[in-house]
């Protein structure tokens, strides 16, 4: 199939347009018109009044990571490094050690994710054989003025709770 070519008439050739200033004021007049109209009544705007109005996000939304715990509070993570191996951004840094809380043998001593480097792909969640890491906190806004603060550690990730009811999260997993 031949490509369709649509020729647009070239504009800006008339002497009045060549002066520029007239066109600039015309444009500003349009902006002013919109501004005044929306000042009077902004119900027609396709804009969310963030942050006063927060978006409604689905359970499978990939937000900030958290590490899950067993009912007794011990971390589910066994430091198998599957997530670190699978991470395309190479931003997970785990140090493993002997487990001291009596659950199996191995646990992470430190577990750091550099959120400045993370691309929020969710591969870490997919790789985990223990369902120990999820991105279901519902937290999507995360800013800082320095790089070090963009790294989140184990204690912080363990303390975060899921942002959705379990059934809803599991529903999202159907078909996987």
């Amino acid at each position: 199939m031949a490509a369709k070519v649509k020729q647009l008439p070239s504009r800006g050739g008339t002497p009045a347009e060549k002066v520029y200033l007239i066109e600039i004021f015309k444009g500003m007049a349009i902006t002013l018109k919109h501004f005044l109209r929306n000042l009077w009544d902004n119900s027609n705007l396709y804009v969310r009044h963030y942050p006063e109005v927060q978006p409604d996000i689905p359970a499978r939304w990939r937000g900030r990571h958290r590490l899950l715990t067993h009912p007794d509070g011990t971390p589910k993570c066994v430091a198998c490094f599957m997530c670190q191996t699978n991470c395309p951004a190479d931003c997970i840094m785990i140090k493993a050690g002997t487990r001291i809380d009596g659950v199996t043998e191995k646990m992470p001593v430190s577990f750091t994710i550099d959120l400045a480097e993370c691309i929020y792909c969710g591969y870490c969640v997919e790789a985990c054989p223990e369902d120990a890491i999820r991105m279901d906190t519902g937290i999507y806004a995360f800013t800082s003025s320095n790089r070090e603060e963009m790294k989140i550690g184990m204690t912080e990730m363990l303390s975060l709770k899921g942002g959705f009811p379990e059934e809803e999260y599991q529903k999202g997993l159907e078909g996987e």
Partner: peptide, 9 residues
């Protein structure tokens, strides 16, 4: 099948 915590994996 301890592979996640097994050094031999």
């Amino acid at each position: 099948t301890d592979c996640p915590i097994c050094d031999q994996a």
